[in-house]
Design a protein around this nucleic acid. Structure first.
Lengths: 227, 227
DNA sequence: TAGATTGTTAATCGATTAACAATC
DNA sequence: TAGATTGTTAATCGATTAACAATC
């Protein structure tokens, strides 16, 4: 096959392999969704990209551009129907349903997560909790979820068909726990341990380390310390 | 003054107004620091940009470029002295000391934060805690920090010369609390409430909302829901 | 209709990467 | 010295923004 033949066939192929949507765009969608739900709760029926942008501190052009990757959701002269756009974003993010999530680590943080009532109405439910401390086994988190031993992880992940795990464990054991979770079939991990996990590239990991974020701020502050 | 005169004087002025360092670079420094400390704890005395990059899943070129904004910290053929680079990054981020931090919200999450022992060795100490629930006033978080009423915020922030606050309060009251904190002199806020705060532009805000991060993952997962 | 706002294009802006001379 | 790795340059890549025709 010579190059001129290739050039003739390539456009058709290209139109099949749609442009990948930038990950940074995906990362903003949940923020849009959260804000739109708030607007809906406040009684707004429509919102323009400008209004939304002002709430979020980003440009209206960026919002329109981001949304344009997925379709045409607005109406010229009017803006976006808030309820409709919410629905669409939930579909895009696949949170128009409830995902089962397992929690590993039943310390103070695990407790706080189990007691948090903000998961369910945004697409998630903690269905099982694990800890490696024998003294905690059998106790319940937030009066509901029973704490099971780490050795039960694989069976539970399979039983609930869980793809998502939250890790609220100390840094020292985090890599080992991640390995177990991945072995058990988990595809996405929200990691509260202050380390970078080593995982296969098909596993998605998000990190929460409050110190990282505070240290990002101190760079800009005037130095003011205790000792 | 004609334009040729201007062109002659401008270069000198430009050399004074140093290029601002991109915020995205600043955001990576705490991650470098965290990893270097871990490497130090593991006994490594030197690390190359390549080793560091592999740990973090980023390119060695990016690490070298990021660091080059602040000086020359490495040695050709060897890499970076881990302890030395830690010290330098701590200085750059101004965490070579302990910042006093106030905590607002003494629920499960506030409790977890107060009990967390990972702040102190990374530059922060919670020195006061507040809640608006009269029943909690006077109780202690993690057997140490006494819970005070929100009305004490201003006096405490002033007393401890606090510039940083952590907000672990419900979304409904978050904006009001933020306003109080800023009024009291707080310059940086770590916000756990699931809303975007409206603040003056000289105030730095970082957000932690686990749902936002899990929703970022579900986009890439195969849909698998409970109901 | 007149005013407002979308979706999209092209230009601008900024960040990442590859490559390599310098040098430990 | 030979090998390794830095700091930096220039090229590439990608993201944001300004602007506007289309149209509600």
């Amino acid at each position: 096959m010579d190059s001129s033949t290739l050039e003739e066939t390539t456009p058709a192929l290209a139109s099949v392999a749609r442009d990948a949507i930038p990950d940074i765009v995906i990362g903003r969608l949940p923020v849009y969704l959260r804000t739109l739900k708030l607007l809906a709760a406040e009684g707004h029926e429509v919102a323009s990209s400008q209004e939304l942008g002002e709430r979020l501190g980003i440009s209206s052009a960026q919002i329109r551009k981001d949304l344009s990757h997925f379709g045409e959701f607005g109406k010229q002269g009017t803006g976006y129907n808030v309820a409709y756009l919410c629905k669409q974003l939930e579909k895009i993010l696949k949170v128009d349903c409830i995902w089962p999530v397992v929690l590993v680590g039943a310390g103070y943080l695990g407790h706080a997560l189990a007691a948090y009532n903000g998961f369910e109405n945004r697409g998630f439910r903690i269905v099982a909790a694990f800890d490696n401390d024998p003294k905690k086994i059998g106790l319940r988190l937030a009066d509901s979820i029973e704490i099971e031993p780490d050795s039960n992880i694989a069976a539970n992940v399979a039983k609930h068909k869980c793809q998502i795990a939250i890790m609220a464990v100390p840094a020292e054991v985090a890599q080992g726990v991640a390995d177990m979770l991945i072995e058990a079939g988990i595809k996405g991990i929200l990691c509260y341990a202050p380390i970078t996990l080593n995982v296969p590239k098909d596993i998605r990991v998000e990190y929460i380390d409050p110190v990282i974020q505070i240290q990002h701020m101190t760079f800009y502050l005037d130095k003011g310390c205790l000792e």
